[in-house]
């Protein structure tokens, strides 16, 4: 193995590590943050669709019931997030990485 090769492999390893670190410390948390924001937007959508799930009677749920066959995943995730979430502050707090 020549010196040039060793330098080459050293650089490759370093690059991989750096990319991994960058991904783990910067990119992924950032995308995760966007994803959580998307989930929050979806929660707001579902709440606007089914206010009577919270005891608020609304004439819209008759119409939004038509969406139910298409939002299986959303509905399940929504319920899970609702059970899971302690407070809105905490949920938002999780979205900050220091």
């Amino acid at each position: 193995m020549t010196l040039a090769d060793r330098i080459e492999s050293y650089r490759a390893t370093l690059e991989e590590w750096l990319r991994g670190l960058y991904h783990g410390m910067i990119t992924h948390p950032a995308y995760e943050k966007i994803e959580k924001e998307a989930e929050d937007a979806e929660d707001a959508f579902l709440l606007a669709c089914f206010p009577d799930a919270f005891g608020i009677p609304s004439p819209v749920s008759y119409y939004t019931a038509e969406l139910l066959p298409y939002i299986e995943d959303e509905f399940e995730a929504w319920e899970r997030r609702l059970w899971d979430r302690d407070s809105y502050m905490e949920r938002k707090g999780q979205q900050y990485h220091f």
Binding site: F50, D52, A53, P57, S58, P59, Y62, A65, L68, F75
Partner: peptide, 10 residues
């Protein structure tokens, strides 16, 4: 959810 939506007064 579906049944509830169809029993609302509206």
């Amino acid at each position: 959810q579906l049944e509830m939506a169809h029993q609302t007064p509206g």
